[in-house]
Amino acid sequence: MKNITLVLGASENTERYSNKAIKKLLNHNHNVKAIGNKIGEVNGVTINKGLVAFNDIDTVTLYLNPTNQKPYYDYILSLKPRRVIFNPGTENDELQHKLNEAGIAFEEACTLVLLSTNQY
């Protein structure tokens, strides 16, 4: 298994990009953890609710708008991921500044596109 990706803003709704990202990450043999606003499951990945103390998170991919990211700032920083991906619509200068100060890389990109083009 490759590095662990945390999908933040995960949903069981198959129309949601977070749902598509979980499936595509699994198809590319990535280990996936997920947190959403309600408990659920996507292709065997449990969607947790709340701040779960995961270890060894390499990448956090965001599917929350900037307002909904605020309660997760300290949590994301505490995970000490290698990078955070801001998917379209999740760009957030305030969080990016905090990541910069913590020495955590980030990019504004689409997880689905990165996987499709082997740039993930």
Rank of each mutant, 00 (worst) to 15 (best):
K2P: 01
K2L: 08
K2F: 04
K2E: 11
N3R: 13
N3V: 00
I4N: 10
I4R: 14
T5Q: 01
L8Y: 03
G9T: 12
A10R: 04
A10K: 04
S11K: 02
E12S: 04
E12P: 01
N13S: 09
T14P: 10
T14D: 10
T14R: 02
E15V: 09
E15L: 13
E15S: 14
N19T: 12
I22K: 03
I22C: 05
K23G: 08
K23F: 01
K24C: 04
L25E: 06
L25A: 09
L26R: 10
L26K: 15
N27K: 14
H28Y: 11
H28C: 10
N29Q: 14
N31C: 07
N31F: 08
N31L: 08
V32C: 12
V32Q: 11
K33Q: 06
A34T: 07
A34S: 08
A34M: 03
I39F: 02
G40T: 06
E41G: 02
E41F: 02
E41K: 12
V42F: 01
G44W: 05
G44C: 11
V45R: 03
N48S: 14
N48H: 15
K49W: 01
K49G: 00
G50I: 06
G50T: 05
G50C: 08
L51V: 00
L51Q: 15
A53R: 06
A53E: 14
A53P: 14
A53Q: 11
F54P: 02
N55W: 00
D56C: 01
D56F: 01
I57A: 02
I57E: 02
D58E: 15
D58H: 14
T59V: 13
T59I: 10
V60M: 05
T61R: 05
T61K: 08
N65D: 15
P66F: 06
P66L: 04
P66Q: 04
P66N: 07
P66W: 05
T67E: 13
T67K: 13
N68C: 00
N68G: 02
N68Y: 10
Q69G: 07
Q69E: 14
K70V: 09
Y75L: 05
I76Y: 11
L77W: 07
L77N: 09
L79F: 03
K80Q: 13
R82V: 11
R82I: 07
R83D: 07
V84E: 12
I85H: 06
F86W: 08
N87Q: 13
N87Y: 08
N87H: 04
P88G: 05
P88T: 13
P88C: 06
P88D: 12
G89N: 11
G89S: 04
D93I: 12
K98G: 04
L99A: 10
N100S: 14
E101T: 05
E101D: 12
G103K: 11
G103Q: 07
G103P: 10
I104Y: 07
E108R: 14
L112D: 03
L115R: 02
L115Q: 05
L115Y: 02
L115N: 02
S116F: 00
T117M: 13
Y120A: 03
